[in-house]
Design a protein around this nucleic acid. Structure first.
Lengths: 335, 335
DNA sequence: GCGCGCATTTAAAGCGCTTTAATACCGAGT
DNA sequence: ACTCGGTATTAAAGCGCTTTAAATGCGCGC
């Protein structure tokens, strides 16, 4: 089965141009030394023979791998976007990416080990759930940047988005439109939910609307949003003029119940989500939401990594970015 | 910056137990030779020292890599599911996966080259768009399985799902419920759209309902679905009792317009999608749709690969799987 | 002519592991 | 005591590349 046509190796190219493998290697990697004439001949030969360097061999021989490992959950659309951007960014710095996904049968631990075994010089951890001390230990082996999670240690680089600020922006925007009765659909008991809730309360307080602040017990999915919306309709009380939801999914739940019940959005009630989940972008949903800009996120991630790899920084940093509001069709001034 | 604690190597372990690296290597890979007592000592030492084999070195030294490369679009949820399943399946056969994603800045060509450079023994191509002859050329270097695409060559292994059959199942199901006026929302001019359309027509004909077959010019997204639904409402004619849509996204568009216009689904009109896109699974959408079972798909993919790698098969195969209907809440008998 | 400095090129030593042929060992059989 | 047939272990030769020190060639001033 193994086809007879052996892979072209460095010495095949070298033999072809009548030079040593050393020279060819130098040319191929753009290292200084070889003359312009030599470069040209080598490049031509490599091209003609279809030479492709063997990664394993290069990796083994070189002292640096210029590889950055990324831990991700391949099913997360946010991770997908992040990786897409990161690819572009690291290439500009001469690095390459190695992806390792966590799945049902492949725990985070193992995914990270694969990355380490592949000689990655640094790791970007998306959606890690490992305890802080494990991350700190890992960071002693190789620079680590954790993304999107708040960490109670200052011994690892952390890159995250200020949800507190994001929810505040939604609330401020609604207030700017003239809303007063702005209710918040809570996301449950997690750390993220707590931060968003706090952001809501602080923003209402900041606008002198503390008395109007209402937190509705909800959850992180459509079902929770639907439940809360129904409760609102059934309560007999007047509806709030706007609902800020924990995330896009719960917002969609609210939207759905309202639409089916003949409540006009945004005419009667404005609805805001969070995350800019693909579902929020669907033409018929067009949900106003809050977005973490992955481009900005990745450029900071790479900055953190490069600083550490170059050795220009040894202490750890926490970078907190501000998200921004994406206004679509579910918000308008109150009647 | 580089921390002083060097990585533990094979000879560190060997030195620790007072054996040669050869023995340690044999033990670690479970190769026959070493005695039970030796195995135990080596394993213990490796564990204690925290030894992890260097992938690059192993790869370079070993004759086989036991690596399978996967080309994917990290943003596709279908690819994500597939990879998740594939991980599990290949591990059972003693292989490991290397992922390479195609992105904006990283064309398919380059993603595939990375895979080849990483010494993959076989390739699984999800969503490739390369011309058939390129795939055939690639297959001469290393066994290739293309997934999800119909190919006009028999010189590459192809694994795909019979859309023709899937749409037929939807139609048959609706007919079984008592529907007669079943309209089809077309998906445009692609090959996939053509196959699904044909499936619809054939099923209607098969049930003696050829006269009732109606293909509505549409498209592959929500906007198309919305457009068609509005046209249906505005036409003044009675609505069909069921609409089979090209895919879930266009079905959601239809659903949305109907719901907003007070048309009850499934009471007045039943709607069926295709793909079992995550959006179809949302609690408030709960769209009846057609699903390609990724588990079945991956097990066939691995079967195709293993046959080729073992050399038990040299000619090429096309495997066409039947999808299955997922009944949710958008279908019911007609009034 | 000769030595010098410079620009090029190359020999050779690995990188950390796998693999195979060869060796060492050990008790059983004669 | 001596060979034989295993079994357990290891020496050593790579895998295909990078990298560094050393070699080579060449033009130039003296």
């Amino acid at each position: 089965m193994l086809n007879p046509e052996r892979r072209v190796r460095l010495d095949d190219v070298a033999a072809d141009v009548g030079l040593s493998t050393a020279s060819v290697s130098l040319v191929l990697r753009g290292a200084p030394g070889p003359s312009a004439a030599t470069r040209e001949r080598v490049l031509a030969a490599a091209e003609r023979l279809g030479y492709r360097p063997d990664r394993a061999a290069s990796l083994l021989a070189a002292h640096r791998s210029r590889l950055i490992g990324v831990l991700l959950d391949v099913r997360s659309t946010f991770h997908a976007e992040f990786v897409e951007d990161l690819h572009e960014t690291v290439e500009q710095h001469g690095y390459d990416l190695v992806l390792s996904t966590i799945t049902r049968s492949r725990p985070e631990r193992r995914a990270v080990e694969t990355l380490l075994d592949s000689r990655c010089e640094a790791l970007v951890l998306l959606g890690t759930e490992a305890p802080a001390e494990q991350l700190v230990a890992l960071d002693r082996q190789v620079p680590v940047v954790t993304v999107g999670r708040r960490l109670d240690t200052t011994d690892v680089d952390v890159l995250r988005v200020a949800d507190y600020v994001g929810v505040g922006q939604s609330v401020d925007y609604l207030i700017g439109l003239g809303h007063r009765e702005i209710a918040y659909l809570d996301g449950g008991s997690g750390m993220i939910a707590a931060e968003r809730r706090d952001g809501y309360r602080a923003a209402m307080r900041g606008a002198g609307l503390a008395a109007h602040a209402t937190v509705l017990a909800g959850g992180p999915d459509e079902a929770a949003g639907m439940r809360v919306a129904r409760a609102l309709l059934d309560s007999g009380e007047p509806l709030p003029s706007a609902v800020v939801a924990f995330n896009d999914r719960s917002a969609v739940g609210v939207l759905d119940v309202f639409v089916r019940s003949g409540v006009h959005v945004p005419g009667q009630v404005s609805v805001v989500g969070y995350d800019d989940d693909p579902v929020a972008r669907l033409a018929h949903v067009a949900l106003t939401t809050v977005r973490q800009d992955t481009g900005q996120l990745t450029s900071h991630a790479i900055e953190l990594l490069v600083e550490r790899l170059d050795g220009t920084r040894t202490e750890h940093r926490e970078v907190v970015l501000a998200p921004h509001l994406v206004v679509r069709n579910t918000t308008s001034p109150p009647r």
